[in-house]
Design a protein around this nucleic acid. Sequence first.
DNA 1: AACGGGTTCAACCGCCATCAT
DNA 2: TATGATGGCGGTTGAACCCGT
Length: 282
Amino acid sequence: MVRAPCCEKMGLKKGPWTPEEDQILINYIKLYGHGNWRALPKQAGLLRCGKSCRLRWTNYLRPDIKRGNFTREEEETIINLHEMLGNRWSAIAARLPGRTDNEIKNVWHTHLKKRLKQNHNRHHQHHSKKQQVTTPVNHMMIRSSSENPDNQSYRPVLSSPQQESSSDMSSSSVTDNSNNNNNNSSSSSGCSNTNTNIINARMKMESSSENFVEIDDNFWSEVLSADSSAVDAAFDALAKMEEPSSTTAVNAFSYSNLQDNMDFWYNLFTRSSGESLELADI
DNA sequence: AACGGGTTCAACCGCCATCAT
DNA sequence: TATGATGGCGGTTGAACCCGT
């Protein structure tokens, strides 16, 4: 079955939005919300398709959107999340209050990918020299293939310590976070500041420590194939690691939708890396 | 000032998942 | 269960802008 294009009907406008159209859309959504995007343009008197209206609203007109350049901290967060999640821009955007998936995608393709590549090359040169005299230290990292940055598999791999090559990226202060992202968090992104802190704190730990536990593919195959009791045990262990004050922590590791629950994996990754550090210290 | 190449980013396209019937 | 409608997502495009010559 082939679906007709969304804007197939003649007379529907395409291309850049005018300020007038923006105002109409804003006014309509303020008054009536956006229950049905398909019907919205007709009811609002816009010669646009619903999809176009939705995109314009979610990517540009939404009041909680943060305009302006990305901070260093936000860029670091994107880089780290991209290592964990791949090109799942909406998942990444969910952890960056006020930023849209489209915006993040653009930033990634225009800035961050290049920067990572440069850092990668820089490190490669550095590492190839170093490797002649020292044993490489394996970092536990979840990343797409370092050989192929566009690879979207989420399979964990052992990596050479690329991350340290981006020491310029990890130089910004974690404590700066308190000044950012503090005024427009919606309920859906209420955890984002915390997450940003965790990500960047973790990144700091990675860049400051040389003691990382090596994890091979067996670990992941075991995790992924674990029966429910094993998973339960893992949850219990993780819950015990949690701060006593956090009452929602265990709930964060939702038992359902394991495959889809990125929060689960995100927390698991961040926690396991933290625990790895502790173990390595012993 | 004019031109050309590179960069940015808003918007579109096509596919997929979910939901209602 | 099958089908169509709808929303959401990631990839791609192209106009606008920037910058060096």
